[in-house]
Structures are given as C-alpha cells and as structure tokens.
Design a protein around this nucleic acid. Sequence first.
DNA 1: GGCTGTGAACCGCTTCACAGCT
DNA 2: AGCTGTGAAGCGGTTCACAGCC
Lengths: 219, 219
Amino acid sequence: MVQRRANMRRIPESTIRRLPAYLRVLENQKETRTTSVALGERTGYSSEQVRKDLAYFGAFGTRGVGYDVSQLGHQIRHILGLDKNVKAVLVGAGHLGTALLRYTQSGVSDVQFAAVLDNSPQVVGSAIGSMVVEDIQHLESIVTERKIRLAVLTVPAEAAEKVAERLAEAGIGAILNFAPSPILTDQDRVLVQNLDLTLELQAMAYFVTEHDDLESPVS
Amino acid sequence: MVQRRANMRRIPESTIRRLPAYLRVLENQKETRTTSVALGERTGYSSEQVRKDLAYFGAFGTRGVGYDVSQLGHQIRHILGLDKNVKAVLVGAGHLGTALLRYTQSGVSDVQFAAVLDNSPQVVGSAIGSMVVEDIQHLESIVTERKIRLAVLTVPAEAAEKVAERLAEAGIGAILNFAPSPILTDQDRVLVQNLDLTLELQAMAYFVTEHDDLESPVS
DNA sequence: GGCTGTGAACCGCTTCACAGCT
DNA sequence: AGCTGTGAAGCGGTTCACAGCC
C-alpha cells in the first residue's frame, strides 16, 4: 500500500489506482464514444465505480450519451500527470528490471525511463533496448540533473533500504519498490510503495488451501 | 484486487495479505520471542493491526510476554497453507517469469514451482535454474498430473485470457496474472489476481505531479 | 508493568437509488 | 429513453481504548 504524505487530495487512493486501467481501455478503443458500463466491463469494476471515479475530477461525460473516448483519455492522462512526461529511474538491471523496462518501452504513452542504474561492472555499460546501463555511483547527479521524480527499485533485498535513502536524499518524489524487503524509512520525505511479488504469491496460497481446522474463533 | 469466490471466511483479505510479511520478519529473526510492536516496526503496520490480524486465527501470544517466534512462524505457514507444499505453474518464461522463478528458488520455504511453460520453441527445453521449460501444449496434463493449484501468468497481453481459460478448465485454483491485460472471465471458477506493473507505475506518476488545476469539485 | 486480545468507535470506500441533462 | 453525476446508505477494515493475563 502507498503510504501518503501530509497534503493529499480528498480523492481516494483506490480511485487513482483505477485510472490507469480506464486509460488503457480507452487507448485500445476504436469507437469514439463509450459509457461507464463498457469501461466497467473491460476493467472489471462496476459502472457506478467508474462514474464516481471520473466525477471526482469534474463532469467529463454527457448525460444520456456517455464519454468521448479521446477527450476522456486526455483528461485521465492529465490527471495522472502522464502528459508532463514524468521521468523515472530504474535501479537494478536484473531480470525484473529488464522486464519492466521492456514493458514501458513497448507501450505508446507512458512513464519514461530516463536512466537505468546498476552496481555490477559487468552490467554497467551494456544496453537494454535503447537504454545504456549507468553506474549507480552517479545516482545523485543523474537524478538531480535529469529532474527525475520517480524511482523503481529492482535491487536485492539487502540493497533496498540504502538505495532508497540515497534516492530520498537526492530529492526523488516516489519509490516503487520491488525488492523483497520493505522500505520503511523516510516516508515523510518520499512516497513509498512496496510491492513484493513473492509475498503476493504466498498470499495466493491461502486461497487455494482448505481451512477446515482454522475456523475463525466465534466471538 | 483479489476477487473472491462464494464461501470465503470472515477474515479480511487484507489480513491474509499481511501474513506473508509477518512471516518473513519471523524467518529473519534471531531472537526466540517477539512482540506486536516489533513486528509492526519491521513490516510497516501498526501494532494493533498485527495483534488483530493474528487474533483472527486464535490466541497465539502470551499476555505480558509476546509471541514465540518459531511457533508463530509455524502457525502462519499453516494458515497460508505453505506447510502443505503448494505447487505452482509458471506460464511465460520471459524476463518477468525468470525473475519470479529466481526469487522463489532462492527463498527457503515458499511456494514451489512444479512446472515452467512457454510456447516459444527456442525457449522450450532450456533451463532456468533447476527447472526445464516445457511446452505450453501440455498445460492441461501437467496441471492435472502434478496436482498444481496455483498459476502465475507472465505472458503477453494477447495470450493472457486464453491461457487463463485453459488453466481454469484444467481445474487450477487461483491465477496471479502479471500480463498487461486483466483476466475478467471465469471468476466464479478461479480466483484471479491481476497485478499489472505498468499500471502501478502510472498510478505512481499521479503522486509526483502537482495538481493545482484539478481540485476536486467542492460539493 | 508489560503486552495480548477485543469490543466499540471511527473512517473511507463502494453500492444504491435517483435526480438531472440530452 | 438513456446515461451521467451524486447524496445517502451500507459495509469492511483500521484505530482506539481498555480489560485480561503473565
């Protein structure tokens, strides 16, 4: 979960996290108009949910008609800040980092990675798609000079906290941490989202096992 | 978010999703005893949250003292079903799949991958760590014969829905889908968790951008 | 005194139901 | 008639505050 800083809007975090899903549907849409029902079906949310989410930011639709696909797309991109060319740095050029980089390179309009860093001499200097891996030593200057606001961490668990500290010090705005170890410090300076894929997998195990024995105690 | 089937327990999903985090802390713990405060600090949750989560399953702690590390570890592993050797199949042996596989192979006690599938002839037959990639053609027989209950999807967007359908048909219990396209069908037969890394990244963009112009309309 | 276990209050998000525009 | 926008109700989860045991 995202830990929030002091002055956030009164817009539910869950709403923000659904917006990219709506956006993707809109971008894959051929028709020029759509409705909350259609958007709901394609994203897995209810139509009321879709309407409420969009209405937080104003009245984008037309009653009796629906939403204009390209217009709504632009609105959402603006809300998310994707029209401002948000720059990100990827720290850790392993398999996971490479996968993420490839995803964002293939997509049309997205968060743009402005740097890929690693600490291994074997990896530094090599290319991943169109990006050349740079030395993590230069993290601070790269973040500052290229005005990078977003960091994605795909480093080993032991390195995560230290790298996060350096990123925070360099003035980054938010960190998406995939390392199998949560980042707990500096949450007043930086927005941190910990996303541990192995923990997700363990949680899934619960839902495929029988639980006859561990009934919740009747209170 | 996980969409739940009919007969789930009255235990919050969010509780389940925190248990693996507690477990990891316990496994990295040297002391033989711990407290809800310590567990909270190391996971980023409040101590009340920790206590409430654990209490759903019984009284594991001792008042005035705390929790026994190894005992609580066993309890959580039992609750999650990790003591039953949950078997998973990885579909899609790209970078993301490889990264996930490596994580789970390095970890001590985890969900075990019993098969890795791909459709590319170049990849089928090659090894990832100790696993040999098998042909996705044999998906159904592999799932059935090896009694696999969990699937992790790291395939391209276009393939996701179709593979999910085959997995559901083969009687899998749950699917963790990383493809950049949500799985929407069959949610009564199979538990589906869609986890789209690029959408996560886009959502983060919102939190690093200024929003002077799009104030929530005063109601 | 210290730390767990838990009802109760609180809070935020989702769903409902309908008013309002086209 | 159709579909959006929205107050109100409902619901699930978190936080509070304290009773209970060591």
